[in-house]
Nucleic acid binder design. Structure first.
Lengths: 132, 132
DNA sequence: GGCAATAGGGATAAATTTCTCCCTATTTGA
DNA sequence: TCAAATAGGGAGAAATTTATCCCTATTGCC
């Protein structure tokens, strides 16, 4: 496992939030768990762009940061269930605010993000295209 | 300059937000510009942990994403002023929500973040310690 | 038997982000 | 004359994050 070499910056609230939410898929993982997708395989279906390996890693970090709990059922084939902690649940309105802003400004955001990629033939497109 | 090789994921509002706000200092840069710290040197004083180089790069990205404008005064020594666009201003309530959550859960966050670093002598501490 | 689904980890590579060091230029002030 | 402040960029290294590939194990189903 990767071990950090530099102590994080913890000077203000935004720093602290960054430490627990700065991960490409974390907001969506929390969001989908809150929507009832508790098992890793369910989460992977909701977020097909994340590899299973990284999903596991980010779930473990969320657990270490006490935002989710991990419950193992001793059955076969294995079953694992993630749930938001009380602490994690306090994040839902925050994530909602963020996602809402993204939805409201969807068109403009797409435009400014994609202009960087116009006429760039070196881009590797994703193997499977999502259409949700 | 670094050129991306992989097309970004733009499946939902959270993806879009990530594309423009995913940068270690971006939220704080926007926040401090909104508070009136418009010049790069002022921003650097507000956020001493960011190197001047990276501050420049993230400011340029924010400008490309139309969240800030850059105004150059043709005087010497040079003077440059960044301002939020109308679009950028719509982000302030979002950033406020995020920062507020961080402030409210400050103690708990510090505790869960730092437990990973206990008894790890390999950590390189920052040269100058901030105490804000 | 062979295959899919389940959960997860090791090793390693690739992509991306951030940092460090060192330049350009001009003006003011000691 | 020399230092500091101003804004900014190139080159390259380091840190960090994410991805790919390939294992373990068990059960049920064809």
């Amino acid at each position: 496992m990767y071990e950090r070499k530099i102590l994080p910056y913890l000077n203000c609230g935004l720093d602290l939030v960054g430490e627990v939410l700065y991960g490409k898929w974390k907001l969506r993982i929390l969001w989908f768990i809150n929507e009832g997708n508790k098992r890793p395989s369910e989460l992977q279906r909701q977020i097909p762009d994340v590899s299973r390996r990284v999903l596991n890693i980010q779930l473990k970090e969320l657990e270490e940061h006490e935002l989710v709990t991990r419950k193992i059922y001793p059955i076969m084939p294995p079953k694992v269930e993630y749930n938001l902690t009380d602490f994690g649940r306090t994040l839902i309105p925050v994530i909602n605010t963020i996602g809402l802003w993204g939805d409201q400004h969807q068109e403009r955001l797409k435009q400014v993000i994609l202009k960087e990629f116009r006429d760039n033939p070196a881009i590797i497109d994703h193997p499977e295209v999502q259409t949700s």
